[in-house]
């Protein structure tokens, strides 16, 4: 059994970027992350600024909104998941949005989002997403049409048996 690290010590090590065009929402997320122990938090008010910062600053986790302009959260995620042009194609991304419809969640998932969180944000839900990203990161999948975290919800993340998907090649 690996050592369990208290949240404040663990999160103190992480560089987190918050991308939201709403300053109040950025403030709320910053307050929650700081309370968890994060000290290195970078903010961006839109997707373009986020991409710019991502090329300059090492980021471990991104938390982004969906509805932004000039480029929205989905386009931001697709840019980051472009293995040919992205500075961080494997970056864990938590999308936080007011959209709660199943159809929207599927669109976000297909764009390459790692975790999805429906507003209103709660401290427990945000903590859980961050904890899962560190403890049990999803493998990545590359097909002709998709590159991003495995979109299947895995009921047992500790499963260590064989890959059952036909044609799957593990690296």
């Amino acid at each position: 059994m690996a050592q369990m690290i208290p949240a404040d010590k663990a999160f103190d090590q992480l560089n987190v970027m918050v991308v939201d065009d709403n300053a109040a929402m950025r403030g709320i997320l910053r307050a929650l992350l700081t309370a968890f122990g994060c000290r290195r938090i970078v903010e961006a008010a839109n997707g373009l600024k986020a991409l710019e910062l991502l090329r300059e600053t090492p980021i471990d986790v991104m938390i982004c909104d969906w509805k932004m302009s000039p480029i929205d959260g989905l386009e931001l995620v697709r840019n980051i998941r472009d293995p040919h042009n992205s500075p961080a194609p494997f970056l864990p991304i938590i999308m936080i949005t007011a959209y709660s419809e199943r159809s929207k969640i599927n669109i976000a998932r297909d764009s390459g989002v790692t975790e999805f969180l429906v507003k209103p944000v709660t401290s427990e839900a945000l903590f859980k997403r961050l904890q899962v990203i560190v403890n049990r990161p999803r493998p990545f999948v590359r097909t002709k049409m998709f590159f991003g975290p495995d979109r299947r919800r895995r009921p047992d993340d500790d499963y260590e048996g064989p890959e059952r998907r036909s044609d799957a090649v593990s690296i």
Binding site: L14, F140, R142
Partner: peptide
């Protein structure tokens, strides 16, 4: 298909020093 599954090394867990409670 075909599906390529990539399991990158868990650098975040290394960075924070273990699993988060």
């Amino acid at each position: 298909k075909p599906i390529e599954i990539i399991t990158p090394p868990n650098m975040l867990r290394v960075k924070v020093g273990g699993r988060i409670a």
